[in-house]
């Protein structure tokens, strides 16, 4: 698996699978968000990924990096909230790091996503343990060095690990102690992204 080369078509399939997964799980994301946020995460992510699929169908970039840059730009322009700039920057910066190569390896993708995750941390000013999407993204990118499946598992475990955490960033932080006991919606949607990646890599 480690020698697999990933082309632009693979990245389009990833984004399409992510859109389908967000669509399926939108209700759950909104439900999680109503416990510690403002009950809109599912709808916002759904709206964003519908737009991503549409733009990739209309104008398919030729390089993996181009796919992620286009997807990220579209999320920034259509999602709003904190998720728009954060997810948008994640994909856009990852795509920029991949450059114009027509094919990339899993290791190159890992390095690219690391640049994206760094951008998210910088933009949101958060660190792992703050009960944010980073709690799924950071372990997932680290595990991507091993395999796609390991990355998906690490993201899922990272999302689950946010349950006992005290929120320190975003709207959930207003709740203080009352944020404890709820799974972070952003970490949950981040895990969906890596589950979709593992699915298309099978």
């Amino acid at each position: 698996m480690s020698d697999t080369v990933l082309d632009a078509a693979f990245f389009v399939r990833w984004m399409t699978a992510a859109a389908a997964s967000v669509e399926r799980e939108a209700g759950r994301l909104t439900e999680l968000d109503s416990a510690i946020g403002d009950a809109d995460h599912g709808n916002n992510m759904q709206r964003g990924f519908v737009a991503v699929v549409k733009v990739l169908e209309a104008d398919r970039p030729e390089a993996p990096g181009g796919v992620l840059v286009a997807a990220g730009r579209q999320l920034i322009s259509s999602v709003g909230g904190a998720s728009g700039p954060l997810y948008g920057s994640l994909l856009r910066r990852s795509g920029k790091a991949l450059g114009e190569a027509a094919q990339v390896t899993r290791e190159e993708l890992r390095a690219g996503l690391q640049a994206g995750v760094d951008a998210v941390a910088q933009l949101g000013g958060a660190a792992p343990g703050d009960k944010t999407m980073l709690d799924a993204l950071v372990p997932a990118v680290a595990a991507l060095g091993t395999s796609f499946e390991e990355a998906a598992t690490a993201a899922e475990e990272g999302a689950l690990a946010t349950v006992p955490m005290l929120a320190r960033k975003g709207r959930a932080s207003y709740l203080g102690e009352r944020s404890i006991g709820h799974q972070d919606p952003g970490a949950t949607s981040s895990a969906l992204l890596f589950a979709a990646l593992a699915e298309v890599a099978k």
């Binding site: 403002d38 009950a39 809109d40 709808n43 916002n44 709206r47 920034i76 322009s77 259509s78 999602v79 709003g80 909230g81 904190a82 728009g84 700039p85």
Partner: peptide
Amino acid sequence: PGEVFTSPVPD
């Protein structure tokens, strides 16, 4: 104006 309770987008 953004969506309900959602910030507008930069555009």
